[in-house]
């Protein structure tokens, strides 16, 4: 696609203009860590941020959202509100790629997820490349970064002379067209630096973890293996890994009675929880922690690729860093990859 450039001082202008037309969501520092929220003041945005503590999936799949209401006399009302257009600015390529995997999973007919689609179609995703990846990251394994991801509309890359902007979709080109005066075509010198940057960062990351991801398919045959038993001893069954993951999309519904109607909510659930597979009869196909842990890893690394042709992990490293018990998906990659 076409390459553009924008000068550093123009970025704030761009953000300000964007926030006038759309709801602008960008990362900024709050209580000692970075978090996505509605950006009111473009000065709060910091180009050198690492990554946000929690993934941006909650803008597309909130932790708790209303599915429908049922009024005893009137019948069903679907509360699908038309959302205003949202710009996610400064999302990292790994998280953007996670959105494209979610699109694969949730927007494939015949099982389209209307709630997700409703939020997704009005969103413009602008990513900001990682030039200094964190120690936990391993996005090179799944080719979801660090410079270019797969799900974004625009990719910004910080170079010494401003930002190189790559328009990845028609939506992205439309945004550039909208603010045409701020962007210029990227010159050769900038592109050289950009290409050099890609090589440098990839080399740096490649030296950390070299994995053949195609070999991961079929690892569920190893279930019950000692490795999972060992890690299961450690696992404390909190659901942090799934809640922080940009890709975990399992949900649960709950119905209850409000003032005048029955309401159904839906929200995040996690396969690590012992209640996840417990049925009303008391039967539980995944009884032990090792089973559940094995399921989590195998689902991400083997079953999603088989079904949806994309890996269920983007290598953002959130679960690695946040897990209180130090369970590390990179070990699975090393062992079987």
């Amino acid at each position: 696609m076409k390459m553009f450039s924008i000068r550093e001082e123009n970025l704030k202008v761009f953000l300000r203009e964007l926030s006038l037309k759309h709801v602008l969501i960008a990362p900024f520092k709050r209580d000692g860590y970075f978090e996505f929220d509605v950006l009111r003041n473009p000065d709060d945005f910091n180009v050198n941020y690492t990554n946000t503590r929690l993934s941006p999936k909650r803008f597309f799949m909130p932790q708790r959202q209303l599915v429908f209401k049922h009024y005893p006399r009137k019948g069903f009302t679907e509360e699908l509100k038309e959302n205003s257009s949202v710009v996610l600015f400064g999302i990292r390529p790994c998280d953007a790629s996670a959105l494209s995997v979610l699109d694969n999973v949730l927007l494939n007919p015949p099982h389209k997820d209307a709630l997700y689609e409703n939020r997704r179609k009005n969103a413009i995703v602008v990513s900001l490349s990682c030039t200094k990846p964190m120690t936990e990251c391993f996005c090179n394994v799944f080719e979801t970064g660090p410079i270019r991801g797969t799900g974004e509309d625009l990719t910004f890359t910080h170079t010494s002379k401003g930002f190189v902007v790559e328009a990845r979709t028609q939506k992205g080109i439309a945004v550039i067209g909208e603010f045409g005066e701020l962007f210029r075509e990227a010159d050769g010198e900038m592109l050289n630096e950009y290409n050099k940057l890609i090589r440098e960062v990839l080399d740096e990351m490649g030296s950390r973890l070299k994995v053949d991801k195609t070999r991961l398919i079929g690892i569920e045959k190893e279930a019950g293996e000692e490795f999972f038993q060992l890690n299961a001893q450690r696992c404390i069954e909190c659901s942090l890994c799934s809640f922080a993951c940009p890709l975990c999309y399992c949900f649960e519904t709950e119905d209850y009675w409000e003032k005048d109607s029955y309401v159904r909510f839906r929200g995040w659930d996690t396969c690590i929880s012992p209640l996840f597979t417990k049925m009303a009869s008391g039967l539980d196909p995944r009884v032990t922690k090792a089973d559940r842990l094995c399921h989590r890893f195998c689902h991400k690394l083997s079953r999603i690729p088989l079904t949806f042709n994309a890996y269920g992990c983007v290598g953002c490293g959130r679960c690695v860093s946040l897990c209180p018990a130090g369970i590390d998906i990179r070990e699975v990659l090393r062992k079987w990859g």
């Binding site: 000692g32 941020y49 964190m134 936990e136 946040l322």
Partner: peptide, 10 residues
Amino acid sequence: YKPVKYGSSK
């Protein structure tokens, strides 16, 4: 030590 977690600015 306090854990230095993902996305920490400190």
